[in-house]
Design a protein around this nucleic acid. Sequence first.
DNA 1: TCATTAAATTGTT
DNA 2: AACAATTTAATGA
Length: 234
Amino acid sequence: MDGRQIAFRNNLPAFLATSPWREGLTEDQFDRVCRDTLAYTFAAGATICHRESPALHWLAVVDGLVKVDTTTEDGRATTFAGVPGGAWFGEGAVLKGEPRPYAVVAIRDSTVAFVPRATFLWLVDSSHSFSRWLIDQLNARLGYYVALVESLRLGDVIARVAYCVAELFNPQLYPNTQPHIGISQEEIGRLTGLSRQTAYRALHELEDAGLLRVHYGSIEVLDLEGLKKYARSP
DNA sequence: TCATTAAATTGTT
DNA sequence: AACAATTTAATGA
């Protein structure tokens, strides 16, 4: 992990207390999560978890924006997911006990919380409520990729950009997303599987439709419901 | 604080 | 994909 620094051990419990699975835990269970969890900050561009590294932690973005991606030998990169602040991810590799099939990279300066694998598995075993939340989490992720395949087959690139941007606000997967997202058009391209030029044109189409605004190095979502509608029927 | 330069990102072909 | 234009960030007086 290049360029990481230990972040605020003190107010990490405040972040954990706002997590979507917290209310179902007992005080004792929550206290253990607080004790076991660490947070680190990473500079933009830094690798948080290398591809094929052992999945020793369950992860959350406390602040910032990270991506889950793979890079081929010839340097081409595709992003599988953009993960904004407040989101929990990486449970798949931890559950399977396998090396991470993707790399986790900071898009912007980001703070990431690390829950040890043992603590995560203990939560699964000891909390029915947590397990249920986890099922909903995995189900939401499955729904995202099914819809993404559908969008790929249908081939409307503007609808695909609308869908991918709107999904950053998925209440199960990404509960705390702010309307202003610091992400370049090149990253939007990787996230949607489109070239930067195509992403550029699609973003401006959506801007002309009044659904979002494009800024230097960021986008601002104005009409989330409109984006979702556009994603379904452009 | 301001001017200069480099780097990142956007816009155009 | 290449290149130009623009915006931001970094540097140093």
